[in-house]
């Protein structure tokens, strides 16, 4: 039996009919076609599926789509504005904070929440600890940490 669900995704209203067991990540990828949000482990360990729900980072493979009914969801696709990358995306590009790129959308979404949670004040230890819910199997953490620190400064400078 399918049930209707409605939420804001990247500022636009998104509605659909889903089975109650549909995960938020399935709704985002399969119903809305927003495939920037990845499914890595599907066991809430790796963080490739991180999106923001009402401003907080969560693992969308471990949340039902119906739980997000009425919520405000942001995915990696909603970050760039008018063709300009979000400062955190730009920092990942500038510092080569990726190798294969599979974990990157989740890393960026977690990093932005981390920066906001710490009111832009981050040091290396905080970043390494704060990204414990995101795994990079290319072991690219060195540049990811550099990118997040630079992204935090750029976010503060640009007031985002």
């Amino acid at each position: 039996m399918s049930v209707s669900v409605s939420m804001k995704v990247n500022g636009k209203t998104a509605t659909g009919n889903v089975e109650p067991r549909t995960l938020l990540v399935q709704f985002i990828r399969e119903h809305l076609g927003l495939t920037g949000t990845h499914v890595g482990c599907d066991t809430s360990q790796c963080g490739a599926c991180v999106v923001h729900v009402d401003g907080k980072s969560i693992k969308s493979c471990t949340m039902l789509a119906l739980r997000a009914d009425g919520a405000d969801v942001s995915t990696i696709e909603g970050l760039a504005k008018d063709g300009t990358l979000h400062p955190m995306q730009e920092a990942f590009r500038e510092h080569h904070g990726l190798q294969c790129g599979f974990c990157t959308p989740g890393m960026v979404m977690s990093a932005i929440d981390l920066v906001k949670r710490h009111n832009y004040k981050l040091d290396e230890k905080t970043v390494r600890h704060g990204l414990e819910g995101n795994l990079c199997r290319c072991t690219g953490y060195h540049n990811i940490v550099k990118a997040v620190l630079a992204g935090a400064e750029a976010m503060q400078a640009k007031g985002v």
Partner: peptide, 9 residues
């Protein structure tokens, strides 16, 4: 407990 995303849920 867990990680930041787990703690948000």
């Amino acid at each position: 407990i867990g990680d930041a995303q787990v703690r948000n849920m």
